[in-house]
């Protein structure tokens, strides 16, 4: 088997492979570091940072669904100052690209978090979470309106000294117009998709299972939706896309590359199998080679590119 080139250069990110654990599913990596060397990973999208610490929602915060799960954690995090003090210095030991997911309850909060993280050399890029469905002002209000999405992107771009990726919500009628709007506002890339709004009910009580009532659906259940949205946006914008949604194996990664993603984030699968990112990275050269690729670049956007 020929050596397969897994490496890809993206704004702010020199990825040795396209596998990035998704924000919220990996904490700050400390738990997974007990299981494997995090330097294996292309990058890590760390847990959302907000300007002040957040406790998040009441419990229960998760519920299982067919081929997926609902979560309504509510952006629980220790706040950006603690992250700078405790988590980033620890993460600096790993040879992997750290993406800081940024969240806020208003536009100013995003800018404040970015300003705090600007001079942190460990952070290679920002990921604007304008798509969390689980907090009232968790960004989804910004992410579902193209003008608001563009405006927060613009403000963050002006403040940011590192590339800005914008994480989009699928809970919209037309994701392409939002993708175009944030591209025009200066986004360096798109991360898509965040979770889809869903519910479950308790059979005994008749009440919603989640204390937050609604939650975000993730896992293989949303993979076809994510693929469709990546496919549509990849043809409408000229900035790179990191695909997210239900990836569990190397074949899923190849599908996202075909749809137009240049890298991927892996979320819920880390819970099902804590070693899944390692397994995907190990399997990827074999799967790419099996379908005739010598590099991941050859597969990106293959579904719509003329050959």
């Amino acid at each position: 088997m020929k050596q397969v080139d897994l490496h890809i250069d993206l704004p702010g990110l020199k990825l040795k492979n396209p596998i990035i654990p998704a924000s919220g599913c990996f904490g700050f990596g400390r738990e997974y570091a007990q299981l494997y060397d995090l330097s294996i990973l292309g990058g890590i999208a760390i847990k959302s940072a907000t300007i002040a610490p957040r406790f998040g929602n009441e419990c229960p915060r998760v519920a299982e669904t067919p081929s997926g799960m609902l979560n309504a954690i509510g952006l629980q995090n220790p706040g950006v100052d603690k992250i700078i003090e405790k988590e980033l210095p620890w993460l600096a030991q790993f040879d992997t690209e750290i993406i800081a997911n940024v969240a806020g309850s208003n536009e100013e909060d995003y800018v404040k978090v970015i300003e705090k993280l600007n001079n942190q050399p460990t952070v290679k890029a920002f990921e604007l979470n304008i798509s969390c469905p689980n907090v009232k002002h968790g960004g989804i209000g910004l992410g579902t309106d193209k003008e608001l999405a563009a405006h927060v992107t613009k403000l963050c771009k002006q403040a940011a000294k590192k590339p800005v990726w914008v994480k989009l919500t699928p809970n919209v009628t037309n994701i392409v117009e939002i993708a175009k709007a944030v591209e025009e506002a200066g986004a360096d890339g798109l991360v898509m998709i965040n979770t889809m709004l869903g519910m479950r009910f308790d059979l005994k009580s008749g009440k919603p299972l989640l204390a937050n009532i609604t939650g975000g659906l993730s896992g293989p259940a949303i993979k076809p939706v994510a693929l469709r949205m990546v496919y549509q946006c990849a043809q409408a914008v000229n900035i790179p896309i990191i695909g997210v949604g239900g990836i569990t194996d190397a074949e899923d990664v190849l599908e996202f590359l075909y749809a137009g993603a240049s890298a991927v984030e892996v979320g819920m699968a880390n819970f099902t199998d804590p070693y899944c990112c390692v397994k995907i990275i190990e399997a990827l050269p074999k799967v790419l080679s099996q379908y005739g690729y010598q590099s991941i670049k050859e597969a990106i956007g293959r579904s719509f590119k003329n050959e």
Partner: peptide, 25 residues
């Protein structure tokens, strides 16, 4: 007992509040 997702401390699905410190979990 709690509903859990990762089971190892990464996902914040199963948290309990501290009795003394309001913002501690």
């Amino acid at each position: 007992e709690s509903r859990m997702a990762c089971g190892m401390g990464a996902c914040m699905a199963c948290v309990a509040k501290d009795q003394k410190q309001a913002d501690m979990y």
